[in-house]
Structures are given as structure tokens and as C-alpha cells.
Amino acid sequence: MSDAILSVEELQTHFFTRAGVLKAVDGVSFSVGKGRILGLVGESGSGKSVTGYSILRLVDAPGKIVGGRILLKGKDLAALDPEAMRRTRGAVVSMIFQDPMMTLNPVLKIGTQMVAAIKAHVKISTADARKQARDALALVGIPAPDERLDVYPHHLSGGMRQRVAIAIALLHKPAVIIADEPTTALDVSIQSQILAEVRRLADQTGTAFVWVTHDLSVVSSLADDIAVMYAGRIVESGETGAVLAHPKHPYTAGLMASVPSQAERGQKLVQIKGSTPSLAHLPEGCSFRPRCPRATDICKTMPALLPLGDTKVRCHHPIVEHAS
């Protein structure tokens, strides 16, 4: 896609541990356009966070990016020296974490930390920086933003802290924000306030989001596009509506069927058999094979992520709907 702000191409991030090489991210590709939200979904351990950290080049030993390219506005991030990468972080691409205290300093007032964050990237007077900070808080829907500048993080509720973290991520109007499960620990009422705000921000400011979550329902209402990860690889991707209306990968279909609201009340839920595989002991071929109801011998070879209709799927026997 030519108008992509962020494209990730065949990204590989591996962990070199005593138990062997863990291929946490193994050939992940996707792109996000201006003002669009990509939902990156998958179960615990599927490699969502490591993908996010890799984009920001925040992977530490024993982990290492061993392959692929990350293009931000067409520029290859691997070509940046550490200082240029530091300037890019925050200004061009920033991150929101599940725990807002990863972003916030508990002993500094909200205003103090926001002013410092602004001044780290632009030459500006403290008064002007304070005004920008105030406007950023108002932008994410925080009531009485002037007063909030003078409080400490512990004076705020979890939902408010997460909004402040989002406001900080937005300070330099980055082109892309990577959000790693930022609403997972919040109540549904607060979550829906934040999701509505994020949707509005993407539409108004043109910021692109990669929204990491394990919750398909969140993706369904928030994201333009979806990428489903399983054991370090994307197994299905496409426009959210198209993927969720007719999931073609047996894993996506299984995930959707196991959501209680999809089932008749009190009836047994559809269950994906077995459990998430350990990266140290992946089966040969398709990683989903031991749990897959459609597996055959050919699945002992790895399928490629290929276009099928208007979405892409990595499966030898995708679920295709027969016209009746």
C-alpha cells in the first residue's frame, strides 16, 4: 500500500534463551494508513507486545530483531542511529502501555511531567508548554484540565491515568501510536469512553494506531483493519468487517465462536481444543495443527499468508462459504 504511514515487512524478533531460540515474532507483515486503526489480536504469548516493542526498537537481550524491515513514513528505522531513534520515539511514533504508570512518574505532578516531555523535543517556553499540556488533556476528554495539571498521578482514577498517558503519547502529534492493551484493566464503562475518544482522535488528527488486544469485541467496534496472530505469525488479516463477518482461518473462527455472547444462553460454548503451544515446542508446519479440526497431512508444511477474496489467510484449508 503506497499511502501507508507504517509498514512492517517480514519482521522477525527472536529470543535466544537457554531453552533454545524462541521465535516470538516470525515473519509478521502489516501496514497502517493515516487515521486508520489496526487491531492486532491474539492470545497470551502470541507475540503482540513483542511486535509493538520491535517497532519502537525497544527489544532487549536475549531478544533481537533478526529479520525484516520497519518503514515509518517510508524511512527504514533500522537505518537510524540510536540518537535519531530516540528523537523518533515520542515525536513520530509513540506507545501506550496496559499500565499507565509505565508512562507516568508517580512523584511528579502531571503538568511537570508533560512540560518536560514537550521540552525534550521542542524549544518552547514553560508557559507555552503548559498550555500545550492543558490542551492535550482537554483533547482526550479530561474534565477540568487546568486543575489536573497540578495533581499527582495517584490522585487520578485508573481510567483518568490512562487518558493522561494517551495525552502524553499524543503531545507531539505522532504519526503512529502503538497501544498495548491500554483498556484491558479498565471497566467497560471507562473503556468505552476511551475507545470513543481514540476513534475520534484517529479521525480528527490523522494519527494511525496499532491497537494490541486479546478482545475481539473491542477490535470489532474500534478498528478499521484486523490482524490475527497465532504463535508469532499473522494467520488472518483484512478489513475488520470482512474478517469478522466470514472468518476463514479455523483459529479466528474458533476464537469468535468461544465468545459467550455468540452462544445461546446456558449452552456449551464452542471450545478450541488443547492449549496455546509453547514457542519452544512448536509443531512442524502449521502451528495450529494439533488443535485444528480441519488439519490434514499437507498441514505438516507451513502455509503462506495469501489473499483469498477480500482478506488474507494463512491456511491450507480455509473456511470458504459455499453459495447456497
Binding site: 467497560v188 473503556q191 473491542v218 470489532s220 478498528a223
Partner: peptide, 10 residues
């Protein structure tokens, strides 16, 4: 406020 599968974007 519960996000629903298939409720559609936004």
C-alpha cells in the same frame, strides 16, 4: 458500553 462483536465500527 459493552463492545459487541459485529456491532460495527464506531
Amino acid at each position: 458500553s459493552v463492545p459487541k462483536l459485529g456491532a460495527g465500527r464506531g
